[in-house]
Amino acid sequence: MITTSLQLAQEELGTRGLQEWIVNNMVPLLLLTVAILLLWLGGGRGDNAGVMRRLGGVFVALAIIGLAVTGSGVGIGKWIASLFSG
């Protein structure tokens, strides 16, 4: 089937495919890279406390990525605003 330029112009453009690709491919690769680096840098020297500090930063970064991907940041922002508005 040949796609004409009119058919392409009528389709909706968006970044959904790119977002799904990043979530499905880049995030696991980054997590694997961080895990290997943590084990290599901290585990080899016996610096377990340093590894756990860095791991805390990784958890914070994962929480931020989770908020960005799921879109629940708006609901959390409204909840925090409701705490101050009374």
Rank of each mutant, 00 (worst) to 15 (best):
S85T: 08
L55C: 08
L67P: 02
E20R: 04
L62G: 09
T3S: 12
T33K: 12
V51T: 15
N24Q: 12
L41I: 14
L31T: 13
L38T: 10
G43D: 05
L32D: 15
R45Q: 06
L8Q: 14
S82H: 05
I22E: 07
R53H: 09
A49L: 10
W79V: 00
G17F: 05
G57M: 12
G14M: 06
N25G: 04
I36G: 13
W21G: 07
G56Y: 01
G86S: 08
V27C: 01
G14P: 06
G50V: 08
R45D: 06
A81N: 02
G17P: 04
W79M: 06
G66R: 06
R54F: 07
E20K: 05
L18D: 07
I80W: 01
G42E: 10
M26Y: 15
A81D: 04
V69Q: 13
F84C: 03
S85M: 02
S82M: 06
V27P: 00
G57W: 06
S82K: 10
G77A: 07
G73P: 02
N48L: 12
F84M: 08
L38W: 07
G46C: 00
M52P: 01
L8E: 15
M26S: 14
N25W: 09
R54Y: 02
T15E: 11
T3C: 11
W40M: 13
F59D: 07
V23F: 00
M26R: 13
L13A: 14
T70P: 09
I22G: 03
L30N: 08
L6T: 09
G86R: 10
A9P: 14
L13Q: 12
F59M: 10
I64R: 02
L31W: 06
G44W: 14
A61H: 01
I80S: 01
G57H: 13
L83N: 03
I65A: 04
G77I: 01
L32A: 11
G73A: 07
L67E: 03
V60D: 07
S72G: 02
G42M: 11
L39R: 06
G77R: 03
G71I: 01
M52I: 01
V27R: 00
S82T: 01
A49K: 03
Q7L: 09
